[in-house]
Design a protein around this nucleic acid. Structure first.
Lengths: 350, 350
DNA sequence: TTGAAAGCGCTAACAG
DNA sequence: CTGTTAGCGCTTTCAA
């Protein structure tokens, strides 16, 4: 860091390193600060000639608007908050990718919050974000605490709940039905001739619960409720955990001939564990994942999975907020982006 | 959005929904705004009694400090900027995890920027972040454009370059040597008796280049420079791409008996491709990854990889900034967190 | 289309 | 330890 003399000698030289402000730009362009402000935010409100002079001054002085001052004066911040349960999970990575992609074309900035799947943390983060007068708020999931929900309902900005669907969203929502997806996947296993598909899941959260319910419903509909087998753990999901749960399942329910995995990591772990056990994946044991990360199609044998529109959800959420902010109305404010079962060798039975 | 009457009728009722400000809290607690401000930021500067009254008023009014006003008045923002090349990559996911974990214990907030491995984007983001008077800036990589570097050197906040090491950091740095890591991994393959280890890589960036150089150096040292085989693609890395590159390698250099993969995704893809080709992984073909994601140990056969301290780097970077901000000096301002070769079945030869 | 004046809510600096 | 006084740099009226 550069050292400064105790007291700078008064000198005609410009104060070193002081950032240019609107006042500086206005002086440089021979106009008022408000015109500069307008030229920058709504170019159409300023005559062409003035605008040109202003833009040049901005260039020459390397002016960068002060976000804080702007937010304070306008009571608006340009920050869109995003609250997700995990930053390390590939599923949310894809979501973020879609989000960052979409935001690049707007004047907004994303501010990420990591809830760690903890309701209290989420509540705290919601408060903090709301305190910053965000331009919008994007929340993963629909399971906010009631206090959080109350705060959200008082929010003066658009709010989008994503990744899931609920009857009564706070404001807007875009996602897909985890229940239906699991139900479809289970139906697929049954249709392929697996008689006793099981379910394995790690770190059970509300989203997972809905998938599990979908699995159970499909089993019940097939008159196989008594054959439902579920193995879960509160620990975080990982490929290694997938292997562990698979082994546990084989021990607890040796009759299970297929397994619906709560996510792709678990499915991959199940695949490796099955191979270690010398099982023929697809024929002796069916494996189906959830999310359809790129690895699923590349695996050997290729793994069946439910493709979820994570990137698309991110893009849609951002566009919904931008639309609301610019045009006012968003239609429809509730979007089901669906899912798609990607059938591959791991559930081929034959 | 709630509708507002054109002109609110003057009424004795409290203005609906108006957020409490310092003035409100001060009035409620019977003191001045500055004392409230102090009680909140430096509790020690206020007597116990006053503090208690203030805290209660804060509670009762649900006061939340206005970030923008605070930043404007103090010329400090509490925001630590983090610029990474990808939000979807598991490697950076782990980094973020470490970062978010560490920041939770501080009063700071992280603001993520996605450079998409693009120097111009990175430069732009650096400017934007710097314009917000961040409390600190964390940059992945050491390959900023010269304009970006110039801006960074003028920055008035701590700057940490992470994930890599360079002779002349902008300010502080924490990472490990990609060159040395690849050199070590290649050395391992040679020591295990593989005579012609190749290298595959996707989306070659400067970090990758250094790994490749490490590979080449190890080959040269072993007098096998003439046996070096490299297959790369500008496309993004993925498991599927790993399979593709592996097949391409087999075609182009059928004599290669091992492959050092630029990342774990590629290694996993190589594993699957090798299995598809009926090769015995470990014996007929050695496979080594880079980063050691959880999947590597769980795979069948388990895959050798270079473990990189991503979470630790995140935690260290944040602590370096916090220390600089609170205590002034950070020692040492340059940290090599090293790496560790995790040897597993995929390079067992035997 | 342009400008002048008046804050936004907070904190730095200086007094008591 | 506590309070007063001035802004921070921008945008919002309102007026010309």
């Amino acid at each position: 860091m550069p050292l400064m003399p105790d007291r700078a000698a008064p000198s005609p030289a410009p104060p070193v390193l002081k950032r240019a402000t609107l006042v500086d730009v206005a002086a440089h362009a021979g106009t008022s600060t408000i015109s500069v402000s307008r030229a920058l935010r709504r170019p159409a409100m300023v005559s062409e000639g003035l605008r040109a002079r202003i833009m040049q001054a901005v260039q020459e002085l390397g002016y960068v608007s002060d976000t804080a001052a702007s937010a304070l004066a306008s009571r608006r911040s340009g920050v869109i908050g995003v609250l997700i349960p995990s930053v390390a999970d590939a599923v949310f990575g894809d979501l973020l990718d879609g989000l960052y992609d979409a935001v690049a074309a707007t004047p907004y900035t994303l501010q990420l919050g990591n809830t760690r799947s903890d309701a209290a943390t989420e509540e705290r983060l919601i408060r903090i974000h709301l305190g910053q007068r965000p331009a919008g708020l994007i929340l993963a999931g629909i399971d906010q605490s009631s206090a959080a929900r109350a705060a959200l309902e008082r929010a003066e900005c658009p709010v989008v709940q994503i990744m899931d669907l609920t009857e009564n969203p706070v404001d807007m929502q875009v996602g897909f039905s985890h229940h239906a997806a699991a139900r479809t996947a289970t139906g697929h296993l049954l249709a392929r001739g697996y008689h006793a598909p099981a379910f394995i899941g790690a770190r059970i959260d509300p989203r997972t619960e809905r998938r599990l319910a979908g699995y159970r419903e499909a089993m019940a509909e097939a008159g196989l409720a008594h054959r439902a087998r579920v193995v879960t753990t509160p620990k975080p999901s990982s490929v290694g955990m997938g292997s562990t749960l698979f082994r546990r399942l084989r021990q607890y329910a040796p009759d299970a001939d297929a397994v619906l995995c709560n996510d792709d990591d678990l499915a991959l772990g199940a695949l490796f564990a099955a191979q270690r056990a010398g099982l023929s994946v697809g024929r002796e044991i069916g494996i189906c994942g959830f999310n359809d990360l790129d690895v699923m199609a590349a695996a050997f044998p290729a793994l069946t999975s439910v493709r979820t529109p994570r990137r698309e959800i991110g893009a849609a959420a951002l566009s919904m907020i931008a639309t609301r902010l610019w045009d006012g109305d968003v239609a429809p404010p509730i979007r089901d982006l669906g899912f798609k079962l990607m059938v591959r060798a791991s559930t081929e039975r034959v």
